[in-house]
Structure formats: C-alpha cells, structure tokens
Amino acid sequence: MTAVLVALGAVVGAPLRYVIARALDGRFPTGMLLVNVVGSGLFGAFAAMALGDAGWALLGTGFCGAFTSFSSFAVQAVERPARTATAYVVATAVLSVGACAVGWGLVSAVG
C-alpha cells in the first residue's frame, strides 16, 4: 500500500516539476529553484502535520520527493558559468532549508 501511494504522489509531482522547469528555466534555472524551494516548504509543512503513514507516503515521500529533484539541480549547476552556478547552489541550499523550516514552523504554530 505504501508503494502504491508513493507512486501516486510521484505520478503527479514529477510531470508538474517538468512543466514548471521547462517553462521557467533559462540562463538561470528559476523554474527548478522554485520547484525545489516550494517542494521543500511543503515537505516541512506535511512533516509537521503528523499525517500518518499513508498520508506521508502520498504527500511527503511521493509528491514532494518526486516534485523536487537533486539530480537536475546538480547537473544544471555544473553546466552553468561559475558565478551563476554559485548563486544557484547557494540559493537552492539556503532557500530550500529555509522554506522547509518555515513550513514546519507555520504548521507547528497553528497545530
């Protein structure tokens, strides 16, 4: 059952990432950055919700896990000129962890 829910979440998350990245990525990978930051924020929020195993498999492991992508981020970074790559790497790391903490904090404060 867990596997089915993870796959279901990923079936939505992966193409959604592809569409956003395709539309917004240019000289700077704005689309992938947005996807990774938003996905990390949602991951933090879902983690704070105590969703239960099924909900977490669908939304956390499945949707957020497949929506965000480290491999695309890493390859895009090494393909960019040094200054763009540095900005992209720092922005992805700081904003993703920051968004995750904000998502966690907001839900924890409400709940």
Binding site: R17, Y18, S40, F43, T61, C64, T68, F73, T92, C100
Partner: peptide, 15 residues
Amino acid sequence: PGVLGGFTTVSAWAG
C-alpha cells in the same frame, strides 16, 4: 526528469 528526477530529492534533504 523521470526516473532520476523522481529518485533524487531536495525536499527530503532539506527536511
């Protein structure tokens, strides 16, 4: 974007 995009994750790393 399919297999490797779904395999790797920034959200779990950040989490």
